[in-house]
Amino acid sequence: MQFTAFSQEKKNINNIDFLNMEHAKKVLQFHESFPMYQQTPLTDLKKLAEKLGIKGFYVKDESYRFGLNAFKVLGGSFAIGSYIAKKLDMDISKLSYEKMVSDKIRNKLGDITFITATDGNHGRGVAWTAKQLKQKAIVYMPKGSTQERFENIKSENAEVTITDLNYDDAVRLANDEAKKHGWVMVQDTSWEGYQDIPKWIIQGYGTMALEAYKQLPEKPTHIFIQAGVGALAGAVTGFFANAYKESEKPIVTIVEPEAADCIFRTANAADGRLHFVEGDMHTMMAGLACGEPCNIGWKVLESYADFAVSCPDYISAKGMRTLGAPIPGDTRIISGESGAVPSGAVMEMLSNPECEEIRRKIGLTDDSVVLCFNTEGATDKDNYYSIAWDGKEASYR
Rank of each mutant, 00 (worst) to 15 (best):
N242G: 06
E246L: 09
S247T: 10
S247V: 11
S247D: 15
E248M: 11
K249N: 14
I251C: 15
V252L: 14
V252C: 15
T253Q: 11
T253V: 13
I254P: 03
V255E: 10
V255D: 10
V255S: 07
E256I: 15
E256H: 14
P257C: 10
P257V: 11
A259T: 02
A259I: 02
C262E: 11
C262H: 08
I263Q: 05
F264D: 00
F264N: 01
T266E: 03
T266G: 03
A267W: 01
A270W: 01
G272M: 11
R273A: 14
R273W: 11
L274Y: 13
H275P: 05
H275I: 11
F276R: 13
D280I: 00
M281K: 14
M281Q: 11
H282G: 00
T283N: 01
M284H: 04
M285E: 12
A286Q: 13
G287R: 12
G287M: 13
A289K: 01
C290N: 04
G291T: 12
G291M: 14
G291V: 13
G291W: 10
G291I: 11
E292G: 01
P293W: 13
P293G: 13
P293M: 15
C294H: 04
I296R: 06
W298M: 12
L301W: 04
L301D: 01
S303H: 00
S303N: 00
A305D: 02
D306A: 10
D306P: 07
D306E: 10
F307D: 05
A308D: 01
C311H: 06
C311L: 14
P312A: 11
P312G: 05
Y314N: 09
S316Q: 10
A317E: 04
K318C: 08
T322Q: 09
T322W: 02
T322A: 11
G324N: 15
G324P: 02
A325Y: 13
P326A: 08
I327Y: 10
I327K: 07
I327N: 06
P328F: 13
P328H: 12
G329E: 06
T331A: 12
T331W: 01
T331H: 13
I333P: 14
I334H: 10
I334Q: 12
I334K: 12
S335I: 04
S335Y: 09
S338I: 05
A340T: 09
P342T: 08
S343D: 07
G344K: 13
A345T: 14
A345L: 04
V346C: 05
M347L: 15
M347K: 08
M349K: 01
S351L: 14
S351W: 06
N352F: 00
C355F: 08
R359C: 12
R360E: 15
R360K: 15
R360C: 01
K361P: 04
I362A: 03
I362Q: 03
G363F: 07
G363M: 09
L364H: 04
D366G: 02
D366P: 00
D366L: 03
D367N: 14
D367I: 00
S368Q: 07
S368I: 08
S368H: 05
V370P: 07
